[in-house]
Write a protein that binds this DNA or RNA. Structure first.
Lengths: 158, 158
DNA sequence: ACTATTCGGTCAATCAGCTTGACCGAACAG
DNA sequence: CTGTTCGGTCAAGCTGATTGACCGAATAGT
């Protein structure tokens, strides 16, 4: 009877591992689709990792250390990544009024345009899913994942 | 009115990009969870990319070129990866009876045990999801993703 | 107020994994 | 039987990330 309960929770082992694989495949489609959409819009000098950095910088006051934590890398790696974005005109570093050591990262207009492009590309991928799913399923999918996944880092490297 | 149709398909733009992010978060949880479960089981010398290689090798007769295609890398990269697995006793190369150039890859008992461990770890992650979802939702999630994602490479790098 | 420790950030060297390019022997097409 | 394609490896080079050292600003302790 414990066995029955487990079966109810896990469906079954085969389905469980299968589901994990499907999630991975879906994520790969998102990444590849967004990447394709980005190059189609003229942004061909950015990797997915940059996108995650953009999302963080756009969302809140962000320092290099914050970014490193959010990306799950070292602060040195984050620093290099930011240096690249600054060199390409997507990001500027401005002094933090509250802490002379820190430098706040902010998106340039170009960086914001790029962020919007990424969101459009992501929406396109999801729209493709909506076309093969019965109406309302996307909302259900969203609701389920929302309950399932907690906040946490969006590690850009497997 | 076109706008209305789009809205029906995409739910809305905000939800769409949000869904994409959730999928990415879910994938990160899977990867990190499996990785943690693997090290907990004593396999601490393997990266996620190796797991994808295992899955392919276990599923069908596989050569290095097949593997490269499946992983979305060059055959040289796949060859190096296989060399590492052979050196660590997870995989053996045996001659292909039909083609003297080719070498068929096969899992050793150690490699098979490792594959089972990975499946267990993946099932654990999914089981965690099942605990916070109403009964039957995992099945629904599985069904939706199954319809949505097509066959394709499981790219190990973002 | 003064010292010591922590913290944000960068510089430098090193490392791991992947790519490009060249090449070999086996298979196949003419 | 000869030219070309294909499976696979070797070698060199590049990129992204890590480790280690360090500087100046902030904070803690007394």
């Amino acid at each position: 009877m414990l066995d029955l309960r487990v079966k109810l929770l896990l469906v079954d082992d085969r389905t469980a591992t299968d589901l994990a694989m499907l999630v991975l495949r879906a994520a790969t489609e998102v990444i590849d689709g967004v990447q394709a959409g980005m190059t189609a819009r003229g942004y061909d000098d950015l990797r997915p990792a940059h996108g995650f950095a953009f999302a963080r910088i756009a969302a809140a006051d962000t320092t290099v250390v914050d970014l490193a934590e959010h990306l799950g890398t070292t602060k040195q790696a984050a620093s290099q990544l930011v240096a690249g974005l600054v060199a390409r005109g997507y990001v500027v570093r401005e002094p933090d009024p509250r802490d002379a050591r820190a430098r706040l990262l902010r998106l340039t207009p170009r960086g914001e345009a790029c962020t919007r492009a990424a969101q459009e590309a992501a929406a396109e991928v999801v729209a493709g899913w909506g076309e093969v799913l019965p109406g309302g399923s996307l909302g259900a999918l969203h609701a389920m994942l929302r309950r399932v996944v907690g906040p946490g880092p969006l590690r850009p490297a497997w």
